[in-house]
Design a protein around this nucleic acid. Sequence first.
DNA 1: TATTGTTATACTCTATAACTATA
DNA 2: TATAGTTATAGAGTATAACAATA
Lengths: 162, 162
Amino acid sequence: MPSALTTTQLEAYYALTEVSALLRHAIEKQLRDAGRLSYVQFQLLTRLSDARDGRRRMTDLADGVVYSRSGLTYQAQLLEERGLVTRLPSPDDERSTVVAMTDEGRAVLATVLPGHREVLQELLFTTPSTGDVNELARILGQAADHMRSTPPRSASRRRRKT
Amino acid sequence: MPSALTTTQLEAYYALTEVSALLRHAIEKQLRDAGRLSYVQFQLLTRLSDARDGRRRMTDLADGVVYSRSGLTYQAQLLEERGLVTRLPSPDDERSTVVAMTDEGRAVLATVLPGHREVLQELLFTTPSTGDVNELARILGQAADHMRSTPPRSASRRRRKT
DNA sequence: TATTGTTATACTCTATAACTATA
DNA sequence: TATAGTTATAGAGTATAACAATA
C-alpha cells in the first residue's frame, strides 16, 4: 500500500496538471493557426533545428519524443509531404533514415516561433518571478532527469519475438 | 516582436514539458491497466468523487477539463455504459444533465487510486524536497490561476450563430 | 434569443503487429 | 539474430456543426 500524498503534493500535482494542459492547449492552437503544425511536428522541427547540420536519424528523433516508431514515421511523412523535411537512407548505416530539414522547414519554423514565445510569455511566464523561474527549472529539471532514467516498470520497448 | 526567452525560462519550459509528458504517459498506462480508464474518465470520476453528493452537472464537469462539450458527452457515455455513472435530467433546470457516480464507479476509482499514487511517488515526488514541493505548488498554483483567468485571445467558446 | 446537451460526422493521432532490409 | 524503419490496420479521442429542448 503506497503512502498517501500530502496536501501540498496534491496541490503541486493538480497545479502541474492544469498548467501543462492549458499551456499545451494554447500552444497547439497557436501552432495550428500559424503554421498548420501539430505539436509533435513542431517538436521534430525544433529538434532538427537544434542539430548543427539540421539532420537527425529517426531513432535519435524518437528519443525524447515519447511516441512509437510508427507514430514518428507518420509525422515525418506528413512533414515530408509538405516539403519541410527530406528523408534519405544514412550513408553510414543503410538501415537508418536521416531526416533533414529543408529551407521551407526552417521558414515555417521561423514563422511560428514568435507566436510561440508570445504564448509562453503571456501564459507561463507572467506570474513567476525570476527566482521562481530558476526554482522551476531546477526542481522540474531534476524530476525530468529522474523520470528519464526510470524505465517503465514493465519495460517493453519492443516486443520480444515470441 | 515578442522578447526572446531567457535561458532559464527555456530550461523551465522544457523541463515542464518533459515532466508532464512522461508523467501523463505513465499515468495513462497505469489507469488503463488497472481499471481500463482513460485519463479523462479518471478525471471525471475524481471530480465526481470530490463532490459532496457525488453529482455534478455536465457544464460544471466541463469547466476545468479542457475538452469540448461533445467530447465530454462521449466520455460520459462510455462511463455510463460501464455503469460507473448515471445521467439524469436536472430537477432544477431541465436543460441540464446531472452526472452521478455509482457504487461501481466508486469501486473502480478505489481500485485504481493506490497505483496512481504509486506512480506519482515514484516519478514525480522522488527527487524534490518538501520545500521544493511547496515551491512547486506555489509557483505553479499561481500560474494556473493566471492561465485559468486568461481567456484565449480569440475567445470563441461557442461559435456565434451566423 | 441564449443556454444545455446530444448527435452525426470527419479527421487526427497513436499503437500493435507484420514485414523488409541491413548489420 | 538484432536493429532500423515502414506499412497496414484498427481503435480511441477530439472538434465542428447541426439539432432539440428548455429558460
